[in-house]
């Protein structure tokens, strides 16, 4: 019998799929019972706590095999989540040539950024939901110029206040803690974002502002 999973903070579809024994999250996302969910979340990588996801019953796969033969079965390993972060300056230019270091628990990835400015890592430890990125803008210093703490899989949909706050923050509008409250700091950020992007400055993140956020951030 199908189950329903209620999304909690830090969940991803891959993680949920693994939890329920699915190797591919699409088996869940594309299931007809999740039509409503798909309409709500067009990007399977961005969930929101409280979302309901139907976990379909597993269907046993039947393999017809000949006897007296040796059969080899390749067991698919569960998909691991991949974290990709593009680092750029306020002018939209990647920090090309600058050293960046991404640390997730015991995983440490260090690289000199190329012109894409992207640093990526496959997350080995599912339970690790936070880490930090260090960016070395001063080549003469061993100390990182910027150290950004990250909460993995905490990016909420742009329709949510927390999603708006997070995107604004990531785009350089520091609206303080991502608490879902549109207080004066968040409103200021929204206004600044609207002013910078030639939107109506009203401090309200309506559909146009959300669309712009989504466009610039990428999701």
């Amino acid at each position: 019998m199908a189950k329903t999973h209620t999304v909690k903070q830090g969940d991803t579809l891959s993680k949920i799929a693994r939890q329920y024994g699915y190797f591919d999250y699409r088996k869940i996302y594309d299931h007809p019972d999740n039509e409503d969910f798909r309409e709500l979340r067009d990007n399977p990588n961005v969930l929101f706590p409280g979302d309901k996801i139907v976990i379909p019953d597993k269907e046993a796969e039947v393999a017809t095999l000949a006897t007296s033969s040796t059969h080899t079965f390749q067991l698919l390993t569960p998909q691991q989540d991949k974290l990709s972060i593009k680092l750029q300056n306020i002018y939209g230019n990647a920090w090309d040539g600058k050293k960046a270091k991404l640390t997730l628990g015991d995983q440490v990835i260090e690289q000199v950024l190329d012109d894409s400015g992207v640093i990526s890592v496959e997350i080995i430890d599912d339970s690790q939901d936070c880490g930090f990125i260090e960016l070395y803008l001063d080549e003469e210093s061993d100390e990182p110029t910027e150290k950004i703490e990250i909460k993995i899989n905490h990016l909420d949909p742009v329709t949510e206040n927390t999603g708006i706050q997070a995107r604004l923050k990531n785009l350089g509008y520091d609206c303080g803690p991502i608490d879902g409250k549109i207080g004066k700091i968040t409103k200021e950020c929204i206004e600044a974002f609207q002013a910078d992007n030639e939107l109506v400055v009203d401090g309200i993140a309506g559909p146009n502002t959300q669309a712009k956020l989504k466009e610039l951030y990428g999701c």
Binding site: S14, K82, K86, Q88, W95, L155, N170, G176, K184
Partner: peptide
């Protein structure tokens, strides 16, 4: 300090399986 508008020491939320854009250094 969440009440301090100048305190930006709050974690940055990102999503896996997605390229996240971080504007840094400003």
């Amino acid at each position: 300090d969440p009440s301090d508008p100048n305190d930006s020491n709050h974690p940055t939320a990102v999503s896996s399986n997605q390229t996240n854009l971080l504007v840094v250094g400003q």
